[in-house]
């Protein structure tokens, strides 16, 4: 009976109720499959980085230390910004769980704001490097630096788009199906945590070591 109801409530079944096979709603299962593909994407790039770096006679190729050619204070600030944004993201989901849409909006707006701050800081970092003539074609370090941080930046932009939808037009679902909306916020939060997790690995790899 409950299974039949789950089939008929939504065009996609089991968006709120757990699927009897996986034990979780289909949306959450879908986001985890997507994140698994993302792990393979970033994993391949990280592996390439490790292979290029261990095969190079000097790293970075132009000499010195990595921390001397990147802006460590700005990278550190960006790390703090992203960790804080994960906290605000989970608080927006917790607000939905506790039935407060205004609090959800407050925390979600903070998440989007922090993500925007991250991109602005990244813009200044990129601009400084371009002003010095350091483009991806400069050497292997900059090729890897721009590829990994650029791809990560695109993921941040994707997260901002999804979160902005949930904050604005998407939040209308709260009045008709709050549980389904809460699940959507959770899925967006899982994606956002993954993007922030990638940065937790990128920061020491590209800025410190």
């Amino acid at each position: 009976m409950a299974e039949a109801a789950a089939h008929h409530e939504s065009p996609i079944p089991y968006m709120v109720q757990p699927h009897p096979v996986t034990g979780i709603p289909n949306g959450k299962f879908g986001i985890w499959l997507f994140l698994a593909s993302e792990v393979m994407l970033f994993g391949a790039l990280f592996s390439s980085y490790v292979l290029i770096r261990t095969g190079a006679p000097h790293w970075p190729p132009e000499g010195g230390l990595t921390s001397e050619i990147v802006n460590v204070p700005l990278g550190t600030l960006n790390t703090a910004v992203l960790i804080t944004s994960s906290i605000t993201m989970v608080l927006s989901w917790a607000s939905c769980k506790m039935g407060s849409l205004p609090r959800f909006k407050l925390w979600m707006a903070a998440t989007i704001g922090l993500a925007s701050v991250f991109l602005v800081i990244k813009y200044f970092e990129y601009k400084h490097k371009f002003d010095l003539g350091h483009f991806p074609s400069h050497d292997n370090f900059y090729a890897i630096y721009f590829t990994l941080t650029g791809l990560h930046g695109l993921h941040i932009i994707g997260g901002i788009i999804v979160n902005t939808f949930l904050l604005t037009a998407g939040s209308k679902m709260w009045t008709t199906d709050p549980e389904h909306f809460t699940n959507r916020v959770e899925n967006a939060g899982l994606y956002w945590h993954f993007v922030d997790l990638v940065w937790i690995f990128l920061f020491p790899s590209l800025y410190l070591l």
Binding site: V90, G189, D196
Partner: peptide
């Protein structure tokens, strides 16, 4: 998200 957040905070 709760479990993933705890994992994330640990790594942070």
């Amino acid at each position: 998200l709760k479990a993933f957040h705890v994992f994330f905070v640990g790594l942070s």
